[in-house]
């Protein structure tokens, strides 16, 4: 089983994700903002990071954190699963899917839209932990 770091400002979402992940045997550590995210990753040593996009002080904090982690040689190998409630809204400049994952634009290993069914979340996490 894996150690998973959840970075999300919504405590309810963190709690429901934690229930699912811990119920499936994973160990969960939560952070509620992206400040010092690289330091948090070094401290927690997660096998996978679940990262929200929109935070109260910055609409693109998740993007910025993902790009920061992607440039950090020490932590860039850890898969990041991006999770956002806002997606595929025309003209918002904020529409993406797994197809848009790239080193420059969306440097993460996977993307899921909130709310996500527990089975789908666990399946995607399993794929990412197996390196798919």
């Amino acid at each position: 089983m894996a150690r998973i770091l959840i970075v999300d400002d919504d405590p309810d979402m963190v709690e429901s994700l934690t229930l699912v992940l811990e119920g499936s045997g994973h160990e969960v550590v939560a952070r509620f903002d992206t400040a010092q995210i690289a330091a948090a990753v070094r401290e927690v040593h997660p096998d996978l990071i679940i990262l929200d996009v929109i935070f109260p002080d910055d609409d693109q904090a998740g993007f910025k954190a993902a790009r920061l982690l992607a440039r950090d040689a020490e932590v860039q190998h850890i898969p990041v699963l991006m999770l956002s409630a806002v997606n595929q809204l025309s003209d918002l400049g904020f529409s993406f899917s797994d197809k848009d994952i790239s080193r420059d634009y969306l440097p993460v290993a996977g993307f899921l839209e909130k709310p996500v069914e527990p089975a789908r979340l666990l399946a995607r996490i399993g794929e990412l932990l197996r390196g798919q």
């Binding site: 919504d10 309810d12 429901s16 409630a85 806002v86 909130k114 709310p115 527990p118």
Partner: peptide
């Protein structure tokens, strides 16, 4: 985001 995030949390709780 303000509209969808709380609903997403409720939905996640319901699924859980």
């Amino acid at each position: 985001h303000e509209l969808k995030a709380p609903l997403a949390a409720i939905r996640s709780y319901a699924s859980t």
